[in-house]
Simulated scan of single mutants.
Amino acid sequence: MRFSQVDVFSAEPLLGNPVAVVHDAAGLSDEQMAAFARWTNLSETTFLLPPTDPAADYRLRIWTPGGELPFAGHPTLGSAHAWLEAGGVPAGDDVVQECGAGLVTIRRGDRLSFAAPPLTRSGPVDEADLEAIAAALRVGRDDLVDAAWIDNGPGWVGVLLADAATVLALEPDWAAFGDLKIGVVGPYADGPLAVELRAFCPGYGMPEDPVTGSLNAGVGQWLAGTRLPRSYVAGQGTVLQRAGRVHVSLVGTPGTGEVWVGGDTRTTVAGSVDL
């Protein structure tokens, strides 16, 4: 089977988030997919399949070392890149991906970008969860400037802290997370980046994800056009010695408009895999 490993959200080599992509994976069982995802030990491994929806160009299954996801952002961009590079031709101007979250549109341009899918859970976070989040992050309850559920499949709860420096200084208590998947955001006062993000998800088999499209999509739906500009660049992965750059833009009304999430993609490994 053809195999690609694509670095996503960085124009520089080896500074983004890699996704392993297996092409023509229709013959693989769930057990084989799960085993390969554990073996790659990347935050996500994907499998390209023929679509079942006539509106889609291909179907994608997305696995972490800990199980399958209905949607994830950097695997969406990296898999679209691999599919196009392998000769895939979309039916229309955009690429349409079928996945567990439904149909996702991927726009081609200076860089690939996806339309953020609808949130499966949104709204305020109750006090008990806020106390648990503060404990997991090892911060005071009053340090949480704002919080909201911004779940588009992986389970994200978004937390706004005072600034980027506070985000970068976090040393979470992994044993306190339970089922929580926490995305933390802190603004920069000036410079090319609007915010710094960190994505904590120990339940998926990796304590911190380097650069996270799904989280950035949820943050854009939550904060773009209000606490953040309508279009901005987010940084992620700094603590992990990465330099992720995520381009987020809002079209329409804050809170209800369409959010697009884009980033650079490049193949770093290409070959075949025997499963």
Rank of each mutant, 00 (worst) to 15 (best):
Met1Phe: 07
Arg2Gly: 10
Phe3Tyr: 15
Asp7Phe: 08
Glu12Tyr: 12
Pro13Val: 03
Leu15Ser: 13
Leu15Lys: 14
Leu28Phe: 10
Ser29Gln: 05
Glu31Tyr: 10
Ala34Asp: 14
Ala37Gln: 06
Ala37Leu: 12
Arg38Cys: 09
Trp39Gly: 05
Thr40Val: 11
Thr40Asn: 14
Leu42Gly: 08
Ser43Val: 06
Ser43Gln: 11
Leu49Val: 04
Thr52Val: 07
Asp53Pro: 08
Ala55Gln: 15
Ala55Trp: 11
Ala55Met: 12
Ala56Trp: 13
Asp57Glu: 05
Tyr58His: 05
Leu60Asp: 08
Ile62Asn: 00
Trp63His: 14
Pro65Val: 06
Gly67Val: 02
Glu68Val: 13
Gly73Leu: 01
His74Lys: 01
Ala80Pro: 05
His81Met: 03
Ala86Ser: 07
Gly87Cys: 03
Pro90Phe: 00
Ala101Ile: 15
Leu103Pro: 09
Thr105Asn: 07
Asp110Gly: 15
Ala115Met: 15
Ala116Arg: 01
Leu119Tyr: 01
Leu119Ser: 08
Ser122Arg: 14
Ala128Ile: 06
Glu131Asn: 13
Glu131His: 14
Ala132Asp: 06
Ala136Ile: 00
Ala136Gln: 05
Gly140Phe: 08
Arg141Val: 07
Arg141Phe: 09
Val145Asn: 00
Val145Asp: 00
Asp146Glu: 14
Ala147Asp: 00
Trp149Asp: 07
Ile150Arg: 03
Gly153Met: 07
Pro154Trp: 09
Pro154Arg: 07
Val157Glu: 02
Val159Ser: 00
Val159Asn: 00
Leu160Gln: 10
Ala164Pro: 02
Leu170Pro: 10
Glu171Tyr: 05
Asp173Ala: 15
Trp174Met: 12
Phe177Arg: 07
Phe177Lys: 11
Lys181Tyr: 13
Gly183Gln: 02
Val185Leu: 05
Pro192Asn: 08
Ala194Gln: 12
Glu196Pro: 12
Leu197Lys: 01
Cys201Thr: 14
Pro202Glu: 08
Gly203Val: 10
Gly205Gln: 07
Met206Ala: 15
Pro207Val: 06
Val219Ile: 14
Gly220Thr: 07
Gln221Leu: 15
Gln221Ser: 13
Gly225Met: 07
Arg227Phe: 08
Leu228Phe: 09
Tyr232Val: 04
Val233Met: 02
Ala234Met: 09
Gly235Trp: 00
Leu240Asp: 12
Arg242Gly: 03
Ala243Met: 13
Ala243His: 15
Gly244Tyr: 02
Gly244Asp: 01
Val246Tyr: 03
Val246Leu: 13
Val246Pro: 03
Val248Arg: 11
Leu250Gly: 13
Gly252Asp: 10
Thr253Leu: 09
Gly263Ile: 07
Val269Asn: 13
Ser272Trp: 15
Leu275Thr: 11
